[in-house]
Design a protein around this nucleic acid. Structure first.
Lengths: 204, 204, 204, 204
DNA sequence: TGATAAACGAGACGGTACGTCGTGTCTTTGT
DNA sequence: ACAAAGACACGACGTACCGTCTCGTTTATCA
């Protein structure tokens, strides 16, 4: 194998790492992703460029990890459970709560810029896209799907419905509106989506 | 003299223009959007760089127009009506047909690369995003919305449903799967979407 | 031939060129050759790095041409004849004059720094070394050799002597003292060299 | 405490030291002095970088000591006396022998590369230059000068001649030819130099 | 002889410069 | 006269070394 020997992760400087995360997130928020450069991140973090190149293959990967770190911190700060799906027995109410929380999150300017940048990068860079989906979206989706399956057990959702596809009815329109700016993102919109989609999958 | 005198559009070389379109689309397909450069397009088109900068403000705008041109040509070639929504009276069948056609289009490798690139660019560049939505997506969506309104008139869809939001139930999951590669894009999937979503908006 | 097509020399910016020469000479004089960088030259000259890389393969070549330009300018300024060897009929006096002039030149701080840098570079880089010798030293040496040949005709020098080797007796010690700092460079030293080399060190 | 406490030389690893010498000489011979790096020497010697920085201030100093070590070893191997000047009574023959030996040494590829590198470095770096002259050249020159003084006592050289300057007549042309590649380095050339310098180039 | 302190190998770090590529502007040239 | 060609100032790329700074791991004197 001709590639360069992997660096020794046990010696990695946590100081540098978090400075790089902070710099990357700040720059993306301030000047936007395309104008954010590795040199700029290094300079802002007070770090040599090589320290970035040693640990990440690209600007997108830096931002992805920075964003994951941010999410983890935010989750840890907010409560013990990272992201929890309520189960009050009222499926419609639970879904509204989840979608409203999603709306709030998507409108939070601290999350907006990096999330949008990563989404865009993921469209063109398959590896980044898969990471983005797997590490950020998938965990939440899995929990939601479980909630739907519970609803199927309790008879609130038809048994022959694929929960993952059903989920897309709620989530994708929201995501699309956010990403493509095709309409306002509000709690009312979230409620409407639940109203329309839920009856499609409810028993008739 | 306040700014550079605008170029005289009547003198514009159609030869250069189509060569630039062809070069842009070819390069995006061959080496991908990020590695496609204005210099590369100019060289491949046998054109001076200035000829590109004179008429387009950025790489994204070149590709957007090239893609619109391609779509127009494809539509003109296929039939007189650019994109038509069937109205057989059977709403479910009509929506299945539309979504299946969309799936076919999204899987066409000639459309895939530039469309994905423009979508990604549009996420970060609001101006490009709006152009992309307005000139490519909106016309189709408007027709679909009209079909839904017709269905409301015939009683196949509840009257209190917002057709544009209802449309998102069908279209966004498809778009999302395509863009984020979160699942296979098939006719069966399109049919499933119609099945799930339609009953949500159908009268109860 | 797979190499990059040569740039079009007729379009070359004379403004940039002379700014680069000036910057290179100034930096070498101010901070020394090893600490002079291409980036530094470009910055000081108000020029893009690529403009240097387009026309010169290395820092040494920039300095070599800058120095040649400086020499040419100095010569053109001083008098019509670039460097002339006197022929008063008195060979010893003529050689003393030439060597004294050489001493003066070598002690001139404006010439010292770049000349020394080029000499050093030429020791390791054969191509630069040959250029340096051929374009800077050789023309002067040729004139001196001619003077020696004239002296042979007039009987002041033995006919069986090789003028180029004889020349080295005068020139090399001077050069060596200058380059290696093995002794003071003075007119008296130059005179002594002429005395020893012309008549030998053995008793007469 | 003004500076870093000096390392304890008694604990120095002779193994590392000689590995560093060997690596430095090998790299200079193989890839040339400018492309020889401290990192490269350390890697080749199987040594940490710090072990070099602990004992030497620069690449040039490493090479200088490596070369001195090499010379000492070579001398020790060849004969008991490090470098001896013959005194057969025939000054011309003795000088020819010395210069011929110098020619042989300069053409030895094992000495060529590092010696040339150090000479070049010494031109720009005064400290290295003085070390180079003092520790490598000076001892030999001193012996030669003594031989010349003996020749003055025996009447073979004029009493009013400065032996150090006289020496330069023989040595500098040789050095210059070698360093600047201005001509072939042969025994015949050495003999010619002795002939010219000893008796002068004027008719006798 | 075992403690302890130093030199050691390894290599991550903050930096600087490298040489290349692409940007968007401006100028020259050939037709 | 236009447009191809491309030189220009600029800025970022990703790489190579610099010299400094920990890390554990040998060594190898002294307690």
């Amino acid at each position: 194998m001709p590639d360069k020997t992997a660096p020794d992760a046990s010696r990695r400087s946590t100081r540098s790492r978090s400075a790089i995360y902070a710099a990357a997130l700040a720059l993306v928020a301030e000047i936007g992703y395309p104008r954010t450069t590795i040199e700029g991140i290094a300079a802002r973090a007070g770090v040599g460029k090589q320290t970035i190149y040693r640990w990440w293959p690209s600007k997108a990967d830096v931002l992805l990890e920075a964003f994951l770190d941010l999410s983890a911190q935010a989750a840890g700060q907010a409560g013990q459970a990272p992201y929890e799906i309520p189960d009050t027995g009222d499926l419609a109410a639970d879904l509204r709560a989840v979608l409203r929380a999603a709306v709030d999150r998507l409108l939070d300017p601290a999350f907006e810029a990096p999330a949008r940048a990563l989404a865009a990068e993921g469209l063109l860079n398959e590896q980044v896209g898969r990471e983005f989906v797997a590490r950020l979206l998938e965990p939440r989706l899995r929990l939601c799907a479980r909630r739907l399956r519970a609803a199927q057990d309790s008879g609130a959702v038809r048994a022959d419905v694929d929960p993952r596809i059903a989920l897309e009815l709620f989530v994708s329109p929201l995501a699309q509106r956010w990403l493509q700016r095709t309409g306002p993102l509000t709690h009312a919109y979230a409620d409407t989506l639940v109203g329309y989609a839920l009856y499609g999958i409810a028993p008739r």
